[in-house]
Design a protein around this nucleic acid. Structure first.
Length: 303
DNA sequence: CGTTGTGTTGAT
DNA sequence: TCAACACAACGG
């Protein structure tokens, strides 16, 4: 069958989405058309940085440089607006234009909290709706200790390994389904698969940090339109004791053999593994005082 | 499957 | 920079 790897093909064109608008307006019968369009139109928000969602909920977003940073979805329009405000202060300073409070003095605890975390960490909290909790917790420990980058983005040695991508595993990824969804973007870039014609997938070998070899079935599920690792995955989950939020990391050797590697890291405390531009930057200085890295200890059965 | 949040365009 | 719009990709 044709279910073999595409040999590191070069042209992985991103989705060709023309995104065309309505056809064209005929001279007359335009009234009905306009009514239809009007009826399916989403209500715009009165708040800055807040956009409606098709299901009646509200999204929050902020722009930096030329890129949108998504801040999550919320049931209440005002909640989304508050979240935007937090992001605005972190991204643009305490004088940023916001939806609600004009801004505080600038020396309060929340400002300190904001400046003690990277943009990526703040965005993560906002998206997960944990910002208020984290802020309160920080206030309780008035010491303001923080778990910083905790060496997550792999300060590291890629002697002959090239980092391909990370994924924070979902509950489903570590559940009973025996499958790991590979985000399509990464799957098609790094693990191209010959699709169509009833492809049952291929076997992929990975070497873990301990040198142990793992073999997973890799295929495309038409039902969910997802690339997945299936057979063999559950054993990896079990042996490593993977929990939701833990991050699996994929590498590949730069040598011609193209050996693949798989590794994992514990769930990140604050920030995500996302590595966008706004993620890269570190919190503003000032809290050099708390240079304490805290690693969460969690019972883990490992071999 | 229902929902997210990304791709994209066009305004300001 | 910003929101409107459409919908592919995602999680469960």
């Amino acid at each position: 069958m044709e279910c073999s790897f595409i040999n590191e093909s070069s042209s992985n064109s991103i989705s060709p989405s023309p995104a065309n608008r309505l056809p064209e307006k005929r001279p007359f019968a335009g009234a009905l058309e306009r009514m239809e369009v009007e009826s399916r139109k989403l209500p715009s928000s009165q708040y800055k940085g807040v956009v409606p969602q098709p299901n009646g909920r509200w999204g929050a977003q902020i722009y930096e440089k030329h890129h949108r940073v998504w801040l999550g979805t919320f049931n209440e329009e005002s909640d989304a607006a508050k979240v935007y405000d937090v992001a605005a202060r972190r991204f643009r300073g305490h004088d940023a234009i916001t939806n609600f409070k004009p801004t505080n003095s600038g020396n309060d605890l929340e400002t300190h909290f904001l400046n003690s975390h990277s943009k990526g960490e703040i965005v993560d909290m906002l998206r997960k709706h944990t910002y208020d909790d984290e802020l309160e917790q920080m206030k309780r420990n008035s010491g303001g200790r923080k778990r910083m980058s905790d060496g997550f983005s792999d300060s590291g040695r890629e002697k002959e390994r090239e980092q391909l991508f990370d994924k924070a595993v979902t509950p489903s990824d570590v559940g009973k389904l025996n499958r790991l969804v590979i985000p399509k973007q990464h799957a098609e870039r790094h693990f191209p698969l010959q699709i169509g014609s009833g492809c049952k997938g291929v076997l992929l070998n990975f070497e873990d940090a301990g040198g142990k070899l793992w073999r997973f079935r890799y295929s495309y599920w038409n039902s969910s339109q997802s690339y997945v690792l299936t057979r063999g995955w559950s054993r990896f989950v079990k042996e490593k004791g993977l929990k939701p939020g833990d991050v699996v990391s994929f590498q590949m050797s730069t040598t011609p053999e193209k050996q693949r590697y798989i590794d994992w890291k514990p769930r990140k405390i604050n920030s995500s593994n996302n590595s966008r531009a706004y993620m890269a930057e570190q919190p503003v200085q000032a809290v050099r005082l708390f240079g304490v890295n805290i690693f969460k200890a969690r019972g883990r059965s490992n071999a």
